[in-house]
Amino acid sequence: MRVRVRFEKNGIMRYVGHLDLMRFFQKAVKRANLPIRYSEGFNPHQIMSFAAPLGVGLTSAGEYMDIDLKEEVPTSVGLSALNENMVEGLAITGFRYLPDDAEKCMSAVTAASYIVTYKDNKDDACYIENICDLKEKFFDEAANINIVKKTKKGERELDLKPLIYRFDIEVKDGVPVYDLLLSSGSTDNIKPELVIKAFHQFLGLPEFDDLSLDIRRIDMFTGEPANFVSLGAIGDEH
């Protein structure tokens, strides 16, 4: 039976990369004594898969991994057993049994939401007073947002507009805070940096530095834009 585990990655854990985090969870599941299923073959490994990897430097309130258990463990027991084996910055917030036909979290993801702001409140963007109006021109009123995306194979033209499902700004203490919902997953995976970079270009701001942004993933979703469902809403607690 498959379980979807939801967790948060906060604070200093932002500096731990995806592969290192996967290895951490393999050991944590083992320490927690969960009856995880192993693959067949000479080098059996735990049947465990993660939704879209989170880049180094980002935090998240909504990360997911699916694990396959040999026998049922009550949700409350699974939650506490895993939480006892976390470190500061990691917390397990969900433990739900998936229906048999549920898609794996890795392939199910179609969108992700983010809150993005600036690490340094002196970023050029903080001095644009009518930034919210300009945002409407950039996003709400635009028919398309064409950018050049660098890929492994070279550069390609891309229209961001249909891949951005929400782009809101709220200015808090003079600093813009973006609320984004972006296409995610194996096709058309849009990173928040890319969207903010396009916005900076629209604003005519000078050279943009990815590292100036403080990015927090809020949740991941499956389904179509009209009816996105949180990955964490699928399945039941037992």
């Binding site: 500096y15 731990v16 951490f24």
Partner: peptide
């Protein structure tokens, strides 16, 4: 590998 320098290991 910044995780070399943050401690916090289980």
């Amino acid at each position: 590998k910044p995780a070399r320098y943050i401690g916090n290991e289980f």
